[in-house]
Design a binder for these strands. Structure first.
Lengths: 232, 232
DNA sequence: AGAAGCGATGTTGCATACAAGATTTAAAAC
DNA sequence: GTTTTAAATCTTGTATGCAACATCGCTTCT
């Protein structure tokens, strides 16, 4: 089947947002990338109006931003914004687990399924799917715990985190992440929410530690070196 | 000065949202209230387009929802949605305090100022200002801790909570809330984040407990009784 | 060659026009 | 008097038109 995008961009007004979020989580859209209204309107077969409305919603969710009369761009957070975003995630996810009573066997099973899918994607070398699943685990966790509000908040925060990781060239190992996800589920299965929360805290610290915050600054250094060094 | 709304709805595209959020936090806009596009466009002196864009953002923030071809309405959460929202708030705010290192004296001072303003509003009997400040305390806390991302998330969640409280006729005493805010600051001042987090948890449980979740169902009961009882 | 000016082109910002459906009002039928 | 039907009215949904501004490429001048 080819390009179903046009099929029902009218039927489902949130299709455009969903696609963009999914693409970002999959690493198929880079931070700073430009998203032209006309471009998108052609892709989805609708007028600029609907595209614009979708962008407004994505803007409110902190996924894109607009530069006056220049266009829409996927967010490109500064180091400070990146820290705040990850801190917010940590607060939310740790708090979510701390205030949790007990996870049912059904929930555990769903989460284990998810981790198995992660492993499969890692093994098969499907980078987009891998990136998506590793990020989506956290949304899945909130959904599984039965709170759509939390899930929605986490979707936005994890999407932003993935964009940050792309920007600061995270070297965080997929396999390690996947293992940590498993560890969190283990703790949940034992009914030890406190331990699960601690592991989540550690996990998110690993994610943050893997970010090379200097890469933004080092661009300047790189440029400087290139201009000062031997050359033309 | 009368009605500055028209003045710069063009200059500041977020004015419409800000006004609606503020009105909701102040209890001047009730859950379920209809917000007509034309109506708003006249109030703010802009075309429907800008109103619509603001509504899209508010929709993404979970403040309003749209009923197809019927109009925009302030959210009117079900009991379940209300629980999820408050649970999310608890997770976020407890997590925020648990993962906090230490609050500086400057922060403490800012927060104490806020509580003083709350007390003043309570004493003066200004219900709108009181409602606004009691809700805004939580946003203020996140801002003071220096995380705009958290502050933004909390603004939306507290706004929704205020709407829920209006819907389920919270009888939570303003004076008690204000006192609990003070207690949280006390714990922060002593550098005891864990205790602050615990107090926040208790505080939010009080807020939730004050909600009369039955009021939605009791409307049916009320109607039923009215129809079955003596009458025409 | 390089910088400055300038027109051509493309993009967003905002308003408006019109279509599609919901709601209300009024009338008519029973 | 009540219910049904139908027309009129109002509201949102979507597209389009035009103005304002940014950007790019070309020319011209130094």
């Amino acid at each position: 089947m080819r390009d179903e995008a046009e099929k029902d961009a009218h039927k489902n007004p949130h299709l455009i947002e969903d696609r963009i979020i999914h693409a970002a989580l999959s690493g198929r859209i880079a931070p700073g990338e430009r998203l032209g209204e006309k471009e998108l309107s052609e892709i989805f077969g609708v007028s600029r109006t609907l595209v614009r409305e979708a962008m407004m919603r994505l803007q409110a969710r902190g996924i894109v931003e607009v530069s006056a009369r220049r266009g829409w761009f996927v967010i490109e957070p500064s180091v400070e914004e990146a820290r705040h975003t990850i801190d917010a995630r940590r607060a939310l996810e740790v708090g979510m687990l701390v205030t949790l009573d007990r996870a049912s066997p059904g929930m555990i099973r769903a989460l284990r399924d998810h981790v198995r899918a992660e492993q499969k994607a890692i093994a098969s070398g499907d980078r987009a799917e891998r990136s998506y699943l590793l990020g989506h685990f956290h949304v899945c966790l909130a959904e599984t715990l039965g709170n759509p509000v939390l899930a929605s908040l986490l979707q936005d925060l994890t999407t932003r985190t993935v964009l940050i990781a792309a920007l600061y060239q995270s070297s965080h190992d997929a396999h390690e992440s996947c293992g940590e996800h498993g560890g969190i589920i283990d703790a949940l299965e034992k009914g030890n929410s406190t331990e699960a929360a601690r592991l989540m805290d550690v996990h998110l610290r690993h994610v943050e530690k893997a970010l090379n915050y200097r890469s933004a600054a080092s661009r300047l250094d790189h440029l400087k070196a290139a201009l000062q060094g031997s050359g033309t």
